[in-house]
Amino acid sequence: MAASGTPHRGLAFYLLIAGIVLYTVFPFYWAINSSLQTSQELFSVTWFPPSFHFENYAGVFQGQPFGRNIFNSLIVAVATVGVSLLLALTASFALGRIRFRGRTVLLLAVLSVSMFPQVAVLGGMFELIRALGVYNSLFGLMLSYMILTLPFTVWVLTTFMRELPKELEEAAIMDGASPWVMITQVFMPLLWPALVTTGLLAFIVAWNEFLFALTFTLSDTQRTVPVAIAGFSGASQFELPWGNIMAASVIVTVPLIGLVLIFQRRIVSGLTAGAVKG
């Protein structure tokens, strides 16, 4: 790393670093800070919680099925990841390891789907969801999320598939392995890092999705976390329960930040490998 140079840096450099950290972390700190204050304390700006109050965290689960919303988000996200990876794994084997006519066109078509604005399919998707009888259901959400997760899982896994050594495949063919055996026994073990990365990215996309969840669910018990948080309302229209909203924000963000920090190298490589949407 030539740009790195000397390990001793000036004060200005560390001020810059401090500024960046403050800029990126402060809003999340502020949510935690606010979530630990009583509604009275929230009426004045206090830089540190005067004392730790957890009423807001308890309050999140009262009056609205927030536990159920978290459960819904988990189910939808996990199902979305599972189905996307399964479909993408077989597809990426074909796209990455087999030469056939139309392969490039197909890859470009898949990539172009990830450019679709969600709104561009909203009317047709609404009709489809209703026609299939999955309106206001988690299955409907899982199905619609395929348009968001499938293109980039296919794309990223194909890039990884291509990089695997050809000898492996030839040895497997010599042993008379079928393509399915080849995928599950030969490629899967080598693709674990890629699967974890793409799976994680797909999970985050599904966990954070808002537009479809807002449009295709109706009842509070079918809502996912983002829609629930967006809809938090207080006693009156003008008085939002900010303490509860901040507590809910912290609850759904902490596991995500945990995942991201644990897998940060993987995520960075996944984001940059296919330059998929963030």
């Binding site: 950290v21 990126t24 809003p27 502020w30 983002p226 900010w242 920090l261």
Partner: peptide, 26 residues
């Protein structure tokens, strides 16, 4: 530490960050 800090805004769901900033903008 810096890289971890930088990843935080990316990891926070858009709706949640909108709410967090809404409160900071109060």
């Amino acid at each position: 530490l810096l890289r971890a800090a930088v990843l935080i805004p990316w990891a926070i769901p858009t709706v949640v960050s909108a709410k967090m900033w809404h409160w900071m903008y109060h």
